[in-house]
Lab assay of single mutants.
Amino acid sequence: AQASVVANQLIPINTYLTLVMMRSEVVTPVGIPAEDIPRLVSMQVNRAVPLGTTLMPDMVKGYA
């Protein structure tokens, strides 16, 4: 199964992502692939992302 990117903490709206904020986990539904974690660093979330939430492409500015 493919691992997705999951929030490792509460990520406030407009926060620039860093490695410590994200982890990879096999979840349903599938979100942003874990292999894209390096690409996500320094990208901004466009909403608050609670701890344990799967990151979806529409949550990250400029990802989709």
Rank of each mutant, 00 (worst) to 15 (best):
Q2N: 13
A3V: 06
A3N: 13
A3L: 12
S4M: 02
S4V: 02
V5T: 12
V6P: 01
V6L: 12
A7M: 08
A7C: 03
N8W: 08
N8I: 05
L10A: 11
L10I: 14
L10T: 10
I11C: 02
I11P: 01
P12K: 07
P12T: 14
P12D: 11
I13V: 15
I13F: 12
I13P: 14
N14Y: 14
N14I: 02
N14F: 11
N14T: 04
T15A: 13
T15E: 15
T15K: 05
Y16T: 12
Y16W: 12
L17M: 13
L17V: 04
L17G: 00
L17E: 00
T18M: 14
L19S: 06
L19K: 10
L19N: 06
V20L: 10
V20P: 13
M21R: 03
M22Q: 00
R23Y: 15
R23I: 05
R23V: 05
S24H: 09
E25L: 06
V26Y: 13
V27N: 03
V27K: 06
T28R: 03
P29T: 12
P29S: 06
G31N: 01
G31F: 02
I32G: 00
I32K: 01
P33R: 14
A34E: 12
E35M: 05
E35W: 08
D36M: 09
D36K: 07
I37V: 10
I37Q: 15
I37D: 00
I37K: 05
P38R: 05
P38V: 07
P38L: 06
R39D: 03
L40R: 00
L40A: 01
S42I: 04
S42L: 13
M43C: 03
M43E: 05
M43D: 04
Q44D: 02
V45I: 13
A48E: 15
A48I: 14
A48F: 13
V49C: 04
P50H: 14
P50N: 08
P50V: 07
L51A: 10
L51Y: 10
L51K: 10
G52R: 07
G52N: 12
G52A: 11
T53D: 11
T54N: 02
T54P: 07
T54Q: 04
T54C: 03
L55Y: 01
L55D: 01
L55S: 00
P57R: 13
D58H: 10
D58W: 11
M59A: 07
M59S: 07
V60G: 01
V60Y: 01
V60C: 02
V60F: 06
G62I: 04
G62T: 05
Y63R: 03
Y63T: 04
Y63H: 04
Y63D: 03
A64R: 09
